[in-house]
Nucleic acid binder design. Sequence first.
DNA 1: AACCGCATTGCACGAACGTGCACTGGTGGC
DNA 2: GCCACCAGTGCACGTTCGTGCAATGCGGTT
Lengths: 330, 330
Amino acid sequence: MTATNEAEPPLPGHASGNRSREALRAAQMYYLQDLTMDAIARELRTSRSTVSRLLSMARETGLVQIQVNNPTERTPALEQQISRRFDIDAHVVPIADTVNDSEVLNRVALQAARTIGPLVDSNAIIGVAWGSTLSAVSHCLTRKQTHDSTIVQLNGAGNTETTGISYASEILRRFGQAYGARVEQFPVPAFFDHAATKQAMWNERSVRRILDLQDRMTMAIFGVGSIGAGIPSHVYSGGYLDPEDLETLEADGVVGDVATMFFRADGSHRNILLNERSTGPDLGDLRRVDRRICVVSGESKIHGLRGALAAGLATDLILDEGSARRLIGA
Amino acid sequence: MTATNEAEPPLPGHASGNRSREALRAAQMYYLQDLTMDAIARELRTSRSTVSRLLSMARETGLVQIQVNNPTERTPALEQQISRRFDIDAHVVPIADTVNDSEVLNRVALQAARTIGPLVDSNAIIGVAWGSTLSAVSHCLTRKQTHDSTIVQLNGAGNTETTGISYASEILRRFGQAYGARVEQFPVPAFFDHAATKQAMWNERSVRRILDLQDRMTMAIFGVGSIGAGIPSHVYSGGYLDPEDLETLEADGVVGDVATMFFRADGSHRNILLNERSTGPDLGDLRRVDRRICVVSGESKIHGLRGALAAGLATDLILDEGSARRLIGA
DNA sequence: AACCGCATTGCACGAACGTGCACTGGTGGC
DNA sequence: GCCACCAGTGCACGTTCGTGCAATGCGGTT
């Protein structure tokens, strides 16, 4: 039987709390004392495989944090150029150009999640958009305990075909869970049919509450949509916009969007009709957020990205190496 | 010929600078994207073993930093008790009590080095003592680039038999190298024969320069010496003190020292004769340093440690689990 | 030019690691 | 009291990793 434990009346009880302590011990021995899992298993009187699992748990729950810094400005040339040219903090995700797009997205998402992690504080109000990029990121987040943080949805997600809400809410939920934060959904469609309805709704208290939160955001995380490229972004293909809308966008010279708010190649966003009906944050307001993290993956995003940068929407940019090359290439 | 940068003409050239970029890429792919070394090797067009070496290098040069936090106050009970009782930040190094003393020292040193690393800032002035504990720690430091930092020796290291200076200077050199800091040695004996000589020396400009630096320390790192225990500390056995001195110490009720400044069990240090001849920093002055990190390993240190804590010499304490138990046990 | 020395590489081997699987002990429902 | 369930465990296997060794290439010296 279990017996044999002696001294230490460990009485397994309901474990759980116990388990994370063991995980902490194991993590310290493994990462700080460089013991092998075998040695740790002996000291913890368990099997090596259990130690392996404890360490997995320690990593997943944010007990262990691994950071990769580039100290001193030995920053890769690519990052330097982007940072200087657009006055932002660039994080280029190294990837050979032979890798296929979905793999690129995965790897960007993973590195993005781990880059964002250390930036999340307690008492933060974090605005999160939705889309395929954010969805991928949300799957990769590692936990980090914070107090009194809030995740707030940046733009509505309902459309005419499917609600899309579960899609967006899944993303938010994962963020909330990773950072131990409250989640505030924004229960409106992505676009209203009539600008007047938006005006009306924007005066509803339930909506105002969300808008107020957005006003007080300390951080925003979003991807970009891009028009006139190969693969259309989620917004352009998911039934959110009808052909007519797309024509209007083209007529307005739109190149992309952030959280369903559209902009032109020069970064301007005045007089774009669709924005009157969109539920995303006014781009001028967005620019007032302290930290605005933009995640970009894949070659189709370049036009939208250029516009977003011209509009000064991001303070931090995480993107794959190929996109980075194209960005400074032209 | 250094030219050639531009557009990546891969020509292996004289590498070195190139190598650390590759190391950064590899580190990002391994630690942030979870690729296997094999996959990284393919993308970097090299062999897996080279990737393994690049990653080693990335870790050693501080490119990769691994931290183990205990988020929320799920702090192990032992640490909590110590922290509360002595009003310090306690870091208990988990070690089974079956491990022999020299192994304990190694593991404490390793964990200490990795705990200290993240605390070191640029523009720091770091006072470092010497002794077997600090020596062990100095061997385990991982690099971290800082600007304009200084390592300053806390107390002299010459004695009547061997100079001991190379011993101490090795420790300092390693600290300096790890943090890219200037090293300021303190070229005086550990103890003067006559208090008057100390007074005289303390007015020499060369000595004043060191004392001034010590005054401006932002961090101090030291072990403790302990008297009346099994294994005497380096100071008590290395020819620094003669039998007569030891008797005086006992008569004065001394239980230990930090950087060759002695104190009693209650933490007091007034009227301890030997301190008049010692070259360590006045303990009152030491207490004014913002961050004072004490590293303790092994069962013989407990008396000295109690005194040091009573004197309020440390803000941070790193010690092995056994010592931690004894500390709160009584 | 020929040589030496140092640094870097890939290979091959043994050590260390992750994980599917079958099993156990403890918990809750009936 | 019985059984169904599930979190947690150890085993065994295939994968992944670290490192001693010999081979290679490059710069500096005679």
